[in-house]
Amino acid sequence: MKSFLVEAKQIGISYGAALFQQLNWTFRAGENVILVGPNGSGKTSLGRLLAGIPESIAKTEGSVSFDKMDLRHLPSIERVQKVSYLPSDLHLQTGLTVGDFLALARFWEGGSHEDLVVKVLLDLRANTWINQPICTLSNGQRQIVLFALALLQDSEFTVFDETFSYLDQEYLALIRTILLERSRGGKSHLIITHDGTWSVLQGSKLMVLSKGRLKERNQKVPAFFDLSDAEW
């Protein structure tokens, strides 16, 4: 199994007021981490910072590195092969088909990667959508396309930011199985969610971000978190 280390050192983000400061976090190969926290706690900002694509209006501090290489200094293509970020939805105004879109996953290699795209879509039981424009898909279907994109990009460390929020239980089970299989092969995943059922992911670590603090929580959690002040 390939080993790597993603290290966030003294990272912080502020939009005028600081969202969080001086956080340190390390991800190792094969790790699955679930990140929860109340709305506005900075989960998305943290996820984007860890993936090397912080929001342009945010003021950031600290550094994120992959095997000691600062993500800010990596060429974009190299960065996405190591660390990638998947949002909760595809806000596309274009009529690109699922096949056209997924062919862009490894655009630097050239070609349409048709065989690979078909295989991934078959694995996700979505092969019949290949010629369908993305803007005609449902929210859940678009999230499955995003997951297919992640599989095709095959980055070492992937941040899923609410990428599975519209999926039914059957798809969630399938995706968890695929993620576990990938992590056995050395891939790491950070899953940002409000859905407590993600803690069932075998061997995963549960982290909570609230009021600028990041804390690991080991106890068994209910399906819906209570992140009220009392708990902290």
Binding site: Q93, T94, L96
Partner: peptide, 14 residues
């Protein structure tokens, strides 16, 4: 095609 997806999506795809 990538640029048509918008700044954020294009950038996140490398």
């Amino acid at each position: 095609d990538l640029l048509m997806l918008g700044d954020f999506q294009a950038s996140s795809m490398g």
